[in-house]
Design a protein around this nucleic acid. Sequence first.
RNA 1: CGCGGGGUGGAGCAGUCUGGUAGCUCGCAAGGCUCAUAACCUUGAGGUCCCGGGUUCAAAUCCCGGCCCCGCAA
Length: 310
Amino acid sequence: MRIVFMGTPRVAALSLQRLLNSPHAVAGVVTQPDRPAGRGQKPAPSPVRAVAEKHGVAVLAPEKIRDPAFLDALTAWSPDVIVVVAYGRILPRQILELAPHGCLNVHYSLLPKYRGAAPVAWAVVNGEEKSGVTTMHLVEKMDAGPILLQRGIALTADETTASLQEKLAPLGADLLLETLAGIAAGTVTPKTQDEAAATYAPMIKKEDGVIDWSLPAAAIERRVRGFAPWPTAYTHFDGALLKIHRARVVESEKAPPGEVVRADRSGLWVAAGAGALALEEVQLENRKRVSSAEFLNGSRIEKGARLGPG
RNA sequence: CGCGGGGUGGAGCAGUCUGGUAGCUCGCAAGGCUCAUAACCUUGAGGUCCCGGGUUCAAAUCCCGGCCCCGCAA
């Protein structure tokens, strides 16, 4: 089939890569414009753009999705189907109805659960035992379109958003090709979503990473994994930002939430609302991430210290 | 030129403002102690203080240039 691909981040780039290696014809690619990124704020191309250019595929990166010149160009590519993977914008009806087969979307959850911008992170934060990928037709309501195919995967006990994404990206790429084949052969049947079972996974904000020490240790530990690699679960020590990259739930004597109950060679433990968290890998602002043992060697943190704002 | 912090024995850090014998915690080696230990005691090895210039009687420390790492931001 003749395909136009719309996507932006790394996970999407993998799907594009797989399409380019398939017999399908990728007529063009649409991605977000180069944005200032990294230190120095130099505009950097999106991962999808990088892959497209490497393969010499035409790329459009409109600032405004409704820009008439862009819509004309998109129409001129005359796709049979538009494949959308984490493009990063809500598409107007005009684009949804542009191709004969409409817009095919790869979503990284088992819909109707976790509709929205951050399905992977919230699945980890909520301690889900399984997640997966779904292909569906895009409709105007966010992630509410009829489901085409779905494939599940079990989460491991130490799953992070980063690790889960690594697993879901290739799964999604596989499912995408399978779905395209099914559409071409007429063997997939769209299935309406069960609205009553829908849940939402809103975009993660920087502030979501702030650790609330009054939560149960198990909940904090899940947030440590769910917010890796971004925004990272973090707190403050002595006025400085302290990121928690890895932690473990432990049993401990009662202490006010946020209080350091252990800071010696047996570990760095912090009291939570229920239980305590053994910090295993941390990172002080401006410094590298280090094991708690290394952190203890260089810092003067002691039992009784308080972590958190103020 | 987006803002800011940093590069000091194998690791993590202090010392730099107010130049003048290189320090802390840990690791490592040897010996000791203990039924035993991520235990403890003693001794020891190990450093071009990122690189290159400059100022000075003297530079980890002050000045100029460069390389690398990191936090914020996106």
